[in-house]
Design a protein around this nucleic acid. Sequence first.
DNA 1: CGTAAATCATCTGCTGTCAAACAGTCTGTG
DNA 2: CACAGACTGTTTGACAGCAGATGATTTACG
Lengths: 159, 159
Amino acid sequence: MATTTRTTDRGTAYFPQLAAERLDIALCRASAAVARAADVHAAGEGLGVGQHLVLQMLDAVGPCSQQTLSEELRIDRSVMVGICDDLEQAGHVRRERNPRDRRSYAVTITDSGLRRLAEAQASIPAFLEDTFHTLTPDERGQLSAILVKLLQADTSSSH
Amino acid sequence: MATTTRTTDRGTAYFPQLAAERLDIALCRASAAVARAADVHAAGEGLGVGQHLVLQMLDAVGPCSQQTLSEELRIDRSVMVGICDDLEQAGHVRRERNPRDRRSYAVTITDSGLRRLAEAQASIPAFLEDTFHTLTPDERGQLSAILVKLLQADTSSSH
DNA sequence: CGTAAATCATCTGCTGTCAAACAGTCTGTG
DNA sequence: CACAGACTGTTTGACAGCAGATGATTTACG
């Protein structure tokens, strides 16, 4: 006895069985792993994931209120405050009051922000390839389509 | 114009485009939605998600150390302490020192725990059906297979 | 035997996220 | 105009998750 190979001698691990039975748990665990990888990548890049998404959206659709950013990026309002604080302090974004509705801001991307965004964007394909390299192109397409359906179901129910 | 449906008049929403480009973000957002649904369901059931998983694993593989439970269920050790505390206080689990290695516990499910588990298990199929009802059986199988591949890649790299 | 290293459960501190309350601003109705 | 209600951004408090340190116990080695 006592081959002492620790967990390996417990015969079959339990987790694969759980992942097969509980689709929700498998989804959450996989998401946590991917989120961690994204955080590591973002830390190496020096730009947080949320900050990157905000710059990307501002570049794509033009100046926005924090509210719109929060809703479209699925980031809580109170979290968005800190993200915009950091971006503004770094000079990547300007916060100007919308003259037509002084409750809201018109968050605008600066030239510095555009350059930073281009820099960060360049590293995304390699990150995605690295994170999902175990999946075939077919599987990536399937996953994308499935997630879109799940997300549509969520937004329609939470509305 | 000016139908005032708020976000709808902003033309095309940005989120679908983001979800299509960034598979990692789509995965995390979908996971968050599913996790929220699971928490709501668990709260209604009166048994936390983690507690449920622990009971289920104990029933499937027999008494375990907290360490083994943590590793197989992908729940942090320090979180497992609280889960076992709650289960023990509720009488669903006993914590006895493993006589062969008194550093570890032999966490054992009680009759009360078995009954509680059976009760909670009964509501899981309906929860899964409700959460993933937008997916066809084919898509659920695809999703399951893809998540298993992602999770295997994670465990092999984190090893 | 005795001491050092390893292991298990626990605790502490930190980070990130969410819910709820708050102040400032706008809209609508009399 | 005045005032009630809604909306935007911010702050606060609570909580999960994780890394690292600690105490108790076991194992390995001289």
